[in-house]
Design a binder for these strands. Structure first.
Lengths: 135, 135
DNA sequence: TCTATAAGACTACATGCGTAATCCAAAAAT
DNA sequence: ATTTTTGGATTACGCATGTAGTCTTATAGA
């Protein structure tokens, strides 16, 4: 697995914009964030520059301006971040977190059904079979 | 809910030590982290000082030295951090995270059973009842 | 009693981050 | 052709963080 660049919280907002649609010009990104983040345009451009340096995004030139697009997938990111989050707070153990959430969170009956269904699938699959290679 | 001080990653390691046992002297904390974190003693003391400033911990004087203890509970912390993590990565929606984990993670059959049991409890409880006051 | 030690206080310094402003060159407007 | 505008590049600056080192003062040892 390649090294994913560290994306800060503010940078993350920019990434989200580019993940939902890309490529986009700087101005488009700025507009998309407007009203939502209360950042000056220059601030957004700074974030874009930093994401470029980190190789989290890239651009194609389109005449006088650039069209930016992500180089890392949101999925990879969420995956990695979640992993390190878990490690930090729950010592890497997933179950305590799951228990915590299943207990604490409001879930609709539909959601509960869906979760149960997923658990059922896992049961059938054979819970203790060697699944090392399955992803 | 009171404002929890922000605890950095390095500081978190110190907190973990104090959460598992307290109060402890600086040296005890330093020893506890030794071999585990590869920090110079002074580094640990800096972290302790910062945690003091942030009111994350406090101390009682014990003769020539201090006995440190946490002022915030690990539970509160994990709770808050998890909340903001979720908001950041999953837009606050718990279900996608649960789905993600139930799918991706290795869980033993025992664990699966336990999770199902918890879901069953929630079902009985009446999924859409107003549970605002239940914690 | 004088001195060495060591705990805690204070200082240090590079890097990352949030939050921009200024500079520069090319395109657009006049 | 000259001026204005505007994207993008560069620079700014304070605070947090990781990672310590130095200073000070009160005990513990000689």
């Amino acid at each position: 697995m390649k090294e994913l660049p560290k994306i800060s919280e503010a940078e993350w907002e920019v990434m989200k914009i580019l993940w939902t649609r890309s490529p986009q010009t700087g101005n488009e990104v700025i507009e998309a964030l407007e009203g939502q983040m209360d950042w000056k345009p220059k601030t957004v451009r700074t974030l874009i520059s930093r994401l470029l340096q980190k190789n989290a995004i890239a651009f194609q030139e389109a005449g006088r301006t650039y069209l930016y697009y992500p180089l890392v997938s949101q999925d990879d990111y969420v995956q990695t971040e979640t992993q390190s989050f878990l490690k930090r707070l729950y010592g890497g153990a997933v179950k305590p977190l799951l228990v915590h959430f299943l207990r604490e969170q409001k879930l609709s009956s539909d959601e509960i059904s869906e979760l149960k269904r997923i658990l059922d699938e896992k049961t059938e699959e054979g819970p203790d079979r060697d699944r090392r290679k399955d992803r």
